[in-house]
Amino acid sequence: MTGTVDDVREPAAVALVLVSHSRELAAGAAELAGQMAPGVLIVAAGGMADGGLGTDYEHIEQAIERAASDGRSVVVLTDLGSAVLTTEAVLEAVAPELAQRVRLADAPFVEGGVAAAVTAHGGAGLDEVAASAEHAAASFGPGASAAVGAPEVAPGEATDDGVVRASRTLLNPLGLHARPAAVVARMLAGYDATVAVNGVNAASVLELMKLGATQGAQLQIEASGTQAREAVAALTDAIDAGFGEI
C-alpha cells in the first residue's frame, strides 16, 4: 500500500455478499472489490455445492450469516434471475433481526460491488453503501463522461469562494486506473471535505476511473469543507508519489 492510507483500522461496519451463478465470477468480483477495499469483509457466494452453475439457498444463507456476524450490516449484490430470487427467499426466512441489517442492492454486479466496497471502506453506513452500489450504473454508463477541468490557480490556496484548488500532473504509467482511484476515494473518506477531481466526485472510485486519465494528464482539484486544505494536501502528495506505483 501507499502509506497515504490508514489501513490499520477496525473492519468496516458494512460487509458485502456477492451472489452469482458462477463460483469463479463471485470469487473474481470479490477479489477485484477487495483489492480496492481491504478493510471490508467481502463474502463470495457463487455456484452450486458441486461447483456447477446455479444459486444455492444454503450457500447464500451461510454467506449472509457470516457477513453479518459481529453485528455488521450487509449489502448483497447479485447477478441474474435466480440469484435475486434465492436471495429474496433467504431474506424472507432469516430472523427479522438479521433481515433488517441486510439490503439487497439493485445494482450492476461488478461495478456495484466495487463502488459498495470502497464506500464501505470509507466507513459509510448501510444505506449509503447500498446507494453507492445502486448509483454505480449511472456513474459508469455511456454519457457519464468526464467534466471539464477547473481553471489553473495557485495550488492549495483558498479562493474567495472558500474553495481550495490545486493542479497536478498524473505520473502513473498506467494512469488513474482502479487501484489508485480506490486509494484516492478511500483517503478522502477520512477528511471532512468535498473534493472534486476534474469536476467529478473524488470520493467515487467509479467516477475517478471513468475520467480515463492517462499518464501526463492534468488533474484539477477543487475542495470545500472544514478540512479542504488538508484533503488537498494529502491528495497532491499522493499524486506526486504516483500512488506508490512509481
Binding site: H21, M48, A49, G52, L53, G54, T55, D56, Y57, E58, H59, G81, S82, L85, T86, E88, A89, E92, A93
Partner: peptide, 21 residues
C-alpha cells in the same frame, strides 16, 4: 421446499421452493 431451494440452481429453485414452503 428447502431441498429444491438448495439444489435446483435456477430460478425454479426459489420459485418452487417458495410454493412448497
Amino acid at each position: 421446499a428447502t431441498t429444491l431451494m438448495s439444489t435446483v440452481g435456477g430460478a425454479a429453485g426459489p420459485l418452487y421452493g417458495t410454493a412448497y414452503l
